[in-house]
């Protein structure tokens, strides 16, 4: 568990650095690092499929997109936004944080096997999915079968993003 705590703390540091630095390219690289460490953390949490996706999609594609964007725009962040604006936004953020932390007071502990989240719907996936779908990986079973329409939605999102890019970036055929 110590490694988890360490990784989490590193994440916080990277996140702060990524939004603090002026060099956008460095920020982009930090963001890639953030995603990779996140992927490691998830592997540690046994979410291997997600970790794999995050490493490829989150760390990989996002970073590529970011670098592409920077190369087409510019590399440095200019003067920071006005102080007043920052204070106002900080208040909103702190309020949201307070509300979110407030929720934890009644939340089940991390890793509690008896937490409601692990009791109601999940057991069927765990115990029945291999019979019902014939897939050993429960994540795949749920993804492709029980909640297959989410996956259809996901595919649609990709298609939508593709069409958005065509709409926004394709040049005229001249």
């Amino acid at each position: 568990m110590a490694i988890d705590i360490l990784l989490l703390l590193i994440l916080v540091i990277i996140a702060i650095a990524a939004i603090h630095m002026k060099d956008l390219l460095a920020c982009g690289v930090l963001l890639g690092g953030y995603s990779l460490i996140m992927a490691v953390l998830w592997t540690n949490l046994n979410a291997v499929d997600v970790a794999f996706t995050e490493a490829s999609v989150g760390a990989g594609i996002t970073t590529v997109l970011l670098i592409a964007a920077i190369s087409r725009t510019k590399r440095r962040e200019d003067d920071p936004s006005p102080f007043r604006h920052k204070v106002q936004m900080s208040i909103i953020v702190l309020a949201s944080t307070a509300v979110f932390v407030f929720a934890l007071l009644d939340a089940p502990n991390f890793g509690d096997p008896n937490a409601p989240a692990n009791q109601h719907v999940a057991p069927r996936y765990i115990h029945e999915s291999s019979h019902e779908t014939g897939v050993l990986n429960m994540v795949t079973a749920v993804l492709a079968s029980y909640r297959g329409y989410d996956t259809l939605g996901e595919t649609t999102v990709i298609f939508t993003a593709g069409m958005c890019l065509v709409m926004l970036l394709r040049r005229k055929n001249e």
Binding site: A103, L104, D106, A107, A115, P116, A117, H120, V121, A122
Partner: peptide, 30 residues
């Protein structure tokens, strides 16, 4: 947050499981 305390994502199912835990701070925050 709702999934955390109910274990479900279905609206009708949520509606039937939520009333027992209406005083939970998680539900309020959600």
């Amino acid at each position: 947050l709702l999934y955390m305390v109910t274990g479900t994502l279905n609206m009708a199912d949520l509606a039937s499981r939520l009333p027992e835990i209406y005083d939970s701070k998680v539900v309020l925050t959600a």
